[in-house]
């Protein structure tokens, strides 16, 4: 499933980047070292963190998208960094748990699964 197809199914909002990438897995975590250790290329990463280093981690692992739950505001600086580095960011109204449930219902599995 591509990020664009995920947007179509969920109604989540594209905040930065483009939605062309394929989603290979999903991961929910707010500790960046854990995400660095376990993330994979194509992962959709759900996190409440919105600072600039989220973009660095997502870019290093070439994540398919970063999903920010609960309509948490994302700063202009983070959006600009995401656009510059080609990182796709989505905003969702649901919680991290809700985002995980939604992606699981579309057949998106865990990292390494």
């Amino acid at each position: 499933m591509t990020v664009d197809e995920l947007i179509q199914k969920t109604g989540w909002t594209l905040v930065a980047g483009n939605a062309e990438s394929d989603i290979t897995s999903a991961y929910v975590c707010d500790l960046l070292s854990w995400v660095m250790a376990h993330g994979q290329e194509g992962t959709a990463w759900v996190t409440v963190q919105t600072h600039l280093n989220v973009i660095a981690v997502a870019s290093l692992h070439r994540f398919s998208c970063v999903v920010i739950p609960e309509n948490i505001a994302v700063s202009k600086e983070t959006i600009a960094a995401a656009n510059e580095k080609g990182v796709c960011m989505l905003s969702a109204a649901c919680s991290s748990y809700g985002a995980a449930m939604a992606m699981a219902s579309f057949g998106i599995g865990e990292v390494g699964a």
């Binding site: 707010d30 500790l31 960046l32 070292s33 660095m36 250790a37 996190t47 963190q49 280093n53 989220v54």
Partner: peptide
């Protein structure tokens, strides 16, 4: 609060 300081840095490097 920014998600750093999980105490995984050096262990991740060694691993």
């Amino acid at each position: 609060m920014m998600g750093f300081g999980a105490g995984m840095g050096l262990p991740n490097i060694k691993r």
